[in-house]
Amino acid sequence: MTLEILTHPSLQPIRHGFFTRKGGASSGLFSGLNCGRGSTDQRDMVAINRARVAEALGVGPDRLATVHQTHSAQVVTLTEGDDLEAVAMTEADAIVSTIPGIAIAVLTADCQPILFADPEAGVIAAAHAGWKGALDGILQETVAAMKAAGATDIRAVIGPCISQRAYEVGEDFMDRFLTEDDGHARFFAGGPNGRPMFDLPGFGLSVLRDLGVEAEWTRHCTYSDPDRFFSYRRSTHEGAADYGRLISAITL
């Protein structure tokens, strides 16, 4: 099966892709393109999957840069000569790059994968933004790091993530957002079980646009489309022992 790669006109002509689970070598729970080294999938299958992603983006398998994601607001800016295996061990949730020939990527399974670009300045970024990272400032820090690298006209696209209709949360979760800003109430709606439903991509878009970034969402829900996307929450509801990780990547 061939890879399925979602792209968006806002990021063109920069080569990029939000990869679905289709076209991978993994099987079982991870059937398809599981790119998560932190999963319990076979390491050689994950390596094959990541190599296929690198090839699709026109870079070598050793030129696909990721970080050790921890739901933080930490950003890594790549420099010439960086050891990408060492970068992969660095705790961070976004990568900024101005270096041609390196693809930067984040892994998700319901959280927001966000790809950024300023094509004229030659600055790109990839960020992993779950609710905690988004609330703690990962998007602000990513934009700041891009500007420090020379970006002035930044575009961003939020890829497949969990949508509001599938994201039931607790009152304490909602209170964390309202304590930060009572205007955040607009990102919550009443759910069928009487609990709040959180609009994660709506929150991400609002933060990005407030930063002056031209931002869009691909409008794909990871929870609701098991044939195309891995989902942490869906796997939890199904009682699965683990789950695959989607990859989203961009390169100059």
Rank of each mutant, 00 (worst) to 15 (best):
I102E: 09
D175K: 15
P100L: 13
V123K: 01
D118S: 10
A185R: 15
A54N: 11
M146W: 03
T236M: 15
C161N: 04
F173A: 05
G137L: 06
A65Y: 08
H68I: 00
A47E: 12
A241W: 04
G130R: 02
I114V: 13
Q140L: 00
I14K: 07
G24L: 09
T79M: 15
G60D: 13
G202A: 13
G28I: 13
I48S: 10
Q112I: 13
Y167K: 09
H184W: 10
A65K: 00
E120V: 06
R233M: 12
D175V: 10
A240Q: 15
I154C: 06
F229V: 07
A151W: 06
D242E: 13
A92W: 12
G23H: 05
A134P: 03
E141G: 05
C111N: 05
D41G: 12
F188T: 02
L200Q: 08
H220M: 08
E80R: 12
G170T: 12
M197Q: 15
T251W: 02
L211S: 02
T20N: 01
E168D: 08
R176G: 00
E180G: 08
G60H: 12
A25V: 12
V213C: 06
E141C: 06
T77P: 01
R15A: 10
P192S: 15
L139W: 14
H16A: 03
V59N: 10
D153M: 00
P201W: 06
F19I: 08
T218L: 14
Q164V: 10
D242A: 13
I95D: 11
L3G: 06
G244H: 00
S206Y: 01
A86G: 02
V96Y: 01
C161D: 03
S235N: 07
D242H: 10
R219D: 14
D210A: 09
I250D: 00
L205K: 04
H16D: 03
A189Y: 01
V59R: 05
K22N: 15
P160T: 02
T77Y: 01
P61G: 04
H16R: 00
V106L: 00
G23L: 08
M45A: 14
F116N: 03
D136R: 13
Q164P: 06
Y243A: 06
G212T: 03
A144L: 11
Q69C: 10
G137T: 05
T98H: 09
A249W: 00
V157C: 07
A25H: 14
F177W: 14
T222F: 12
G32S: 07
P226D: 07
P113V: 07
T79Y: 07
E180N: 11
A117W: 02
A25P: 01
A88I: 10
S206K: 06
D182Y: 14
S97P: 04
S39I: 10
D82H: 14
I48C: 02
K147V: 09
A127H: 13
F187T: 12
V213W: 08
I250P: 00
D153A: 11
L84M: 12
T90P: 07
G183Y: 03
A249F: 01
W131L: 11
F229H: 04
G212I: 10
R209A: 08
F230P: 04
A47S: 15
E80S: 11
L29R: 14
T2F: 14
T142V: 13
A117D: 04
N49G: 10
A185H: 09
F203I: 08
G60R: 15
A145S: 05
T218M: 11
L33N: 05
R245G: 00
G17E: 07
T251G: 08
E120H: 07
R219A: 15
